[in-house]
Simulated assay, not measured.
Amino acid sequence: MLEARRLILRRWREEDVAPRAAVNADPEVMRWIRDGSVRDEQQTRAGVQAWESEWESQGFGLFAGQSRSTGDWPGSPAFRCSTSRRRHCRRLRDVHEKNRSSGRR
C-alpha cells in the first residue's frame, strides 16, 4: 500500500468489483478504453482477479485507488510497473514483501 496526502494506492478487494463494474458498464467511459467494449460484473471480477494474480506472481501490479478523506473508490490510477521502470518496480516489490511479511496486504 502506498499513501499520499489525499489518496491511498492499494491492492484490490472484493468490494472494489461493484464500483469498477459500474465504470466498465458505462459506454461513455469505455469508448476511450481499448476497443470501447463495455464489460459486465463477471468480466470485471475476472480482471480484478488477474490483477491480483499479477501481484502474487510478480510482487507488483495495477493499484486500486481509495480516497483518504471519504474511503470512496475514485478509480484505478493508471500506475503500473513497466519494463522501462524496473528500478521503481523493485522498490514497489520490496514494499509489498515487507507488508506481506507483516500481515498487511
Rank of each mutant, 00 (worst) to 15 (best):
M1T: 04
M1V: 07
L2M: 04
L2F: 04
E3V: 02
A4F: 10
R5Q: 15
R5H: 14
R6I: 08
R6T: 13
R6P: 06
R6C: 10
L7I: 12
L9R: 04
R10H: 12
W12V: 02
W12R: 09
W12T: 01
R13M: 10
R13D: 13
R13E: 12
R13T: 09
E15W: 15
D16H: 02
V17S: 06
P19W: 04
P19G: 06
P19M: 03
R20V: 12
V23I: 14
N24Q: 15
N24C: 14
N24M: 15
A25C: 08
A25D: 04
A25N: 09
D26A: 10
D26W: 06
D26Q: 11
P27Q: 03
E28T: 07
M30A: 14
M30I: 05
M30Q: 05
R31W: 00
R31Y: 00
R31A: 02
W32Y: 05
W32K: 00
I33W: 04
I33E: 03
R34F: 09
R34A: 08
R34L: 11
D35P: 03
D35Q: 11
G36K: 06
G36F: 07
S37F: 05
S37M: 09
S37D: 11
V38N: 03
D40C: 08
D40F: 11
D40E: 14
D40H: 09
E41F: 03
Q43C: 05
Q43I: 05
T44K: 11
R45V: 06
R45W: 07
R45A: 05
V48E: 02
V48H: 02
Q49H: 15
Q49M: 15
A50R: 12
W51A: 04
W51F: 13
E52V: 10
S53P: 09
S53T: 11
E54N: 12
E54C: 12
E54D: 14
W55T: 05
W55G: 02
E56Q: 14
E56K: 14
S57I: 13
S57M: 10
Q58K: 10
Q58W: 09
G59Y: 00
G59S: 13
G59E: 05
F60D: 00
F60K: 03
G61T: 02
F63L: 05
F63V: 01
F63E: 00
F63K: 01
A64D: 03
Q66R: 11
R68A: 10
R68E: 09
T70V: 08
T70P: 04
G71P: 10
W73I: 00
P74A: 12
P74E: 07
P74M: 06
G75P: 03
F79M: 15
F79G: 04
S82W: 15
S82H: 12
S82V: 08
S84Y: 12
S84R: 07
R85T: 12
R85K: 15
R86N: 14
R86K: 15
R86Q: 15
R86I: 13
R86P: 05
R86C: 08
H88D: 14
H88C: 07
H88R: 09
C89G: 12
R90P: 00
L92R: 00
L92V: 05
R93S: 00
R93Y: 00
R93V: 00
R93W: 00
V95C: 01
V95M: 01
H96Y: 01
H96P: 01
H96D: 00
K98W: 02
N99G: 11
N99R: 13
R100I: 00
S101K: 11
G103F: 04
G103I: 02
R104N: 13
R105C: 14
